[in-house]
Design a binder for these strands. Structure first.
Lengths: 359, 359
DNA sequence: TTTATATATGAGACCGGTCTCTTGTCCAGA
DNA sequence: TCTGGACAAGAGACCGGTCTCATATATAAA
């Protein structure tokens, strides 16, 4: 099988042109599929190209056209099912429209995000879809926009930026989940997020740098405020970033003099960690505690009982973001807008109805 | 916030050179970080670059150097946790080595794979990591190699190709799982795979086009053959590609005159589907039937009982594949080899010990 | 037959970098 | 003072395409 690998230098239009006895311009016309060429010459060139196994150099092509045909996608963590599903939606749409997708990971860190943005811009991506790690730091995102590269935010929005954003309807979704718990008689409802914060407790809401988390917290609090519940803020906890910390957060909640009777978890990963915590602490769902998780992840359907979730159509969100970006790419000059994709509550078995006496 | 967007044309070295009153060559030396430049001039150029917000055009850079700094990754389905975790491993290693990753999906279809390969080659990726959809069709992969682009196969190997491959130790893993079931007293062991096949039953083993699946089947059969079990082949079933079909496969197995007492599922997705099937048919694990799944997926730890799994260190596999490729990229001329990453059996609660009377 | 028009091809500039080759300057050693 | 080498900067070719403009031929209209 040892191929000689002699043909290190790749075949160019000039090579094909020479072989076909035509000018470089003509060969380029055939190979590039533009301009007018006679059928006879076309066949000659095509034959020569086939014989030489010509493969166009997209790099060179991109350089002259100024279009790379690549959409850059910058997510928090591909490993997270939320993002991998979204990426799937994005790339499906992109491929249909003739674009390719280059994916970068920020790890939810601002610096990594900045350098990834620089890099993608450097690669001359035609457009960018970004999940901003922080919604309060956006100079680098503004730069993108200024350079003239269309940008669509995903999952989180930054109104001040004035660019398109595709997100869930986080505020409404959180209200819906809270409403459901209230209806079932719960009065002490905890909200647990993986947001990295110095303080486990909720400080200034407007300082939450992730708009999705902020809106969810606002939704949870609003609904409880409307129901006349006072201590709602106290039950909002941040920093459940890994299993040990989640165990800690959950333990402190449970050890409280007035422990919550229900939990809402901010995403499927926190949800899973919280579920495991509850298991290790020997709590039974929903007998001892009720639970609702964001995102209809795999694991939520096979637990006993299955978990009531807020279903975000993530794949659709990804598609929508890509569609929006591609419209921009095609020069549609519509005003920037935020598209909040509607979510729904899927009731399964993890929420108990609380007898009045327990409330 | 309406930026004028006037600066449509991007700033080039020539622009910077002009602003700094030096030649294009000198500015390029500073900006490109090569050659010798005096400190004074360097600062001038850097200042001019900063003032003009110069951003290097990686495309142009790639064109002259012939290196794009991009590694192409072609997977079956990013949405699958197996691949997204592997991609994470690949990109982590790639980033450390200064490479970027461009991801494409084949959807496990040969045609999509071919065109994706063409496209990535066209983008002049420096190297490729591919999960071949079929191990019996590889002309396009041979082309990659011939063009001089290093290639590493992932998850599946094609010895005839003579290129590096990083896979699990599928044969051994399957033997291990089977051994465990045999030790626990099981004599009728089913193996269920999502391999798309015209026939649900196993035909010619060597015709299984996915080497990972083939080796697992071989492992399952070998171990049973060694234990003197005759009807092992009969219990190998293919085509559990979606929930309805999986339900069908499971149902037919259970309705059999001699139904299996244990199941091995080929990956975490099939595993989940099979688990759901068993739930809908009202079977209890492990009382009614035992189960082992490949891949330590999220969901396997939160079921009741948790599922015994064959743990593949997928992230490590991804890292290994990237490391291998990067070594090649750095010109290390070692012979092609297959690296089979060792897997382990994590015993949880889904395998029952069968009393002799039941065997 | 002459002029206009469409069609087909060639020549060469250009995109934005890298890199080689050349020229110029400065200082040490003879 | 002259020579040589190190260092610094400039000029311009090149990568592999696209694309404009000029040119040549064929066909149609006047």
């Amino acid at each position: 099988m040892e191929e000689p690998l002699t043909s290190k230098r790749s075949v160019t239009v000039a090579d094909v042109a020479r072989a076909a006895n035509v000018s470089k311009a003509t060969a380029a016309r055939v190979l590039g599929g533009y301009g007018i060429v006679s059928d006879k010459v076309r066949e000659q060139v095509l034959a020569a190209a086939a014989a030489l196994e010509y493969r166009p150099n997209e790099l060179a092509r991109s350089m002259t056209t100024g279009k790379s045909g690549i959409i850059g996608v910058l997510v928090g963590d591909i490993e997270n099912a939320f993002f991998s599903l979204a990426v799937r939606g994005i790339s499906d749409v992109a491929r249909m429209a003739g674009f390719n997708v280059i994916i970068a990971n920020s790890g939810e860190e601002l610096d990594a995000e900045k350098s990834a943005v620089d890099l993608l811009i450097g690669k001359r991506v035609d457009g960018l879809i970004v999940t901003p790690a922080r919604c309060d730091r956006m100079e680098h995102l503004r730069d993108i926009h200024r350079v003239g590269v269309p940008l669509v935010l995903f999952d989180r929005s930054i109104p001040e930026l004035g660019v398109d954003a595709v997100t869930g309807d986080d505020f409404d979704a959180a209200m819906m989940a809270t409403r459901h718990l209230l209806d079932m008689g719960h009065r002490r409802i905890a909200y647990i997020s993986a947001m990295d914060a110095e303080n486990e407790f909720l400080g200034d809401i407007s300082s939450i740098s992730n708009s999705a988390v902020r809106e969810r917290v606002e939704g949870v609090l609003k609904e409880q405020a409307d129901a006349g519940i006072k201590k709602a803020r106290y039950y909002v906890r941040l920093g459940a970033t890994d299993q040990p910390r989640t165990d800690g957060v959950v333990e402190r909640l449970l050890r409280d003099a007035a422990p919550p009777t229900a939990l809402i978890t901010s995403d499927s990963l926190v949800g899973l960690r919280v579920f495991k915590s509850l298991q290790t602490f020997g709590l039974s769902i929903p007998r001892d505690i009720s639970m609702i998780s964001f995102l209809d992840a795999d694991w939520t359907t096979v637990t006993t009982p299955p978990i009531t979730v807020i279903d975000q159509p993530v794949y659709e969100m990804g598609k929508k973001a890509a569609e929006r970006l591609i419209s921009r790419l095609n020069g549609k000059g519509m005003p920037a807008e935020r598209t909040a994709i509607k979510t729904s509550l899927i009731r399964r078995g993890s929420v108990a109805s609380l007898p009045l006496s327990d409330q």
